[in-house]
């Protein structure tokens, strides 16, 4: 049974559509948007000040601490520097525990504590001249941040962890002089690491992800998104790499990518997770398109008919993606309707 259309939730998009259909005029649209709080009121500005000032303030203090220790100020002894860096980290963690993770200030302090692991490790590296292998610093930092990401379970903590892992891998590849061939190996490892961490994140945070208002609900999705974004450079390498050098690796990489994406897409559609369907679907399109482009480019077949086939192929991909998204949306809405006791 379809609901009465006027009994729907008034959204800004719907109201704008009514205005474009001349069912309400400009003045009424302004009032309606204000009524549904689509424009910022005092509470919105307050929330903005709360999050933005806290976020930028914490970020600046942490960055200031990193810059201070990077300066390697010789007026301070090495013991004092390591002690100070460790103490700041510990103070941030204690402050977070004291304030509580239910408050924004507590979560910011906890994220700060995770970020301040870096200065503690870098002062040790400076004091004992352990070498400038940046990847070791970031890898250690990432590993030690994992418990913080699990405990804090905010999207920011997951984003920090994800960025640290990727920086560590990139520095590792750079410092070990990996060429296109080696980078593909790294890309395969990253793909599986992403898939594993995503599954782990979903398992650990299944209650959070069920509640969209929860701070940590977007954490795993964010992790997935960063994974897809960071896969793009390795895909570029896949296209451009010399066919004779990278043929085996790129074949293995793309096959692994197909399997991972197919499994992810089926799982996301089946569970009605639309956001994930969109991300994994786009990533799948990127991977399949890359394979196609690689075949066409190395076979020098990117002429008129080649362009047509490629264009048509991408449109087929888009149609499949649109179908998967529609299916996912239907399942998501059906699930929501069932939980609200309404027949869709």
């Amino acid at each position: 049974m379809r609901k009465n259309p006027a009994d729907r939730e008034a959204t800004p998009t719907l109201l704008r559509q009514l205005a474009q259909e001349k069912l309400i005029d400009g003045r009424q649209l302004v009032d309606a948007l204000r009524l549904i709080h689509a424009h910022a009121d005092r509470s919105a500005w307050r929330a903005f000040a709360d999050k933005l000032l806290l976020g930028i303030g914490t970020g600046l203090i942490v960055a200031g601490a990193i810059f201070f220790f990077a300066a390697n100020w010789d007026a301070m002894g090495k013991g004092a520097r390591i002690g100070l860096a460790s103490a700041i980290h510990l103070i941030a963690a204690v402050a977070a525990a004291k304030i509580g993770l239910h408050r924004p200030a507590g979560r910011a302090a906890a994220a700060g504590a995770a970020l301040l692991i870096g200065p503690a490790l870098l002062t040790y590296g400076q004091a004992y001249q352990t070498g400038a292998d940046a990847w070791e610093l970031f890898a250690g930092w990432a590993v030690l941040s994992v418990p913080f990401a699990i405990v804090v379970r905010g999207s920011a903590a997951w984003a920090v962890l994800s960025v640290l892992v990727r920086i560590a891998v990139l520095f590792f590849a750079e410092q070990h002089g990996f060429g296109a061939d080696g980078l593909l190996g790294v890309a395969i490892a990253m793909l599986f690491a992403d898939a594993a961490s995503y599954i782990a994140a979903l398992r650990l945070m299944r209650r959070d992800t069920a509640d969209p208002n929860n701070q940590g609900a977007r954490g795993p999705t964010l992790f997935l998104l960063l994974g897809v974004v960071s896969a793009a450079p390795s895909l570029f390498v896949t296209i451009m790499a010399d066919a004779s050098v990278a043929a085996v690796h790129s074949g293995v990489f793309l096959l692994a990518a197909f399997i991972a994406h197919a499994a992810g897409l089926v799982n996301a559609v089946k569970n009605g997770r639309t956001q994930e369907t969109a991300i994994i679907g786009l990533s799948a399109c990127l991977h399949i398109g890359t394979t196609f482009a690689r075949v066409m480019l190395h076979g020098s077949r990117l002429d008129g008919p080649g362009l047509f086939i490629f264009g048509a192929f991408i449109l087929i991909e888009a149609t499949v993606l649109a179908y998967a998204l529609t299916l996912s949306l239907q399942r998501s809405r059906a699930r929501q309707a069932t939980s609200e006791g309404v027949t869709p």
């Binding site: 307050r46 000040a49 000032l53 203090i61 408050r103």
Partner: peptide, 30 residues
Amino acid sequence: AMVLAGALLIAARALILGGFLGSMKRSVSD
């Protein structure tokens, strides 16, 4: 400069929200 600017922003936030801790928002992260 960064630490000073960060401290000023957090102080401004405290002034606007009437306290350092800000709003209390309960979540399962507790």
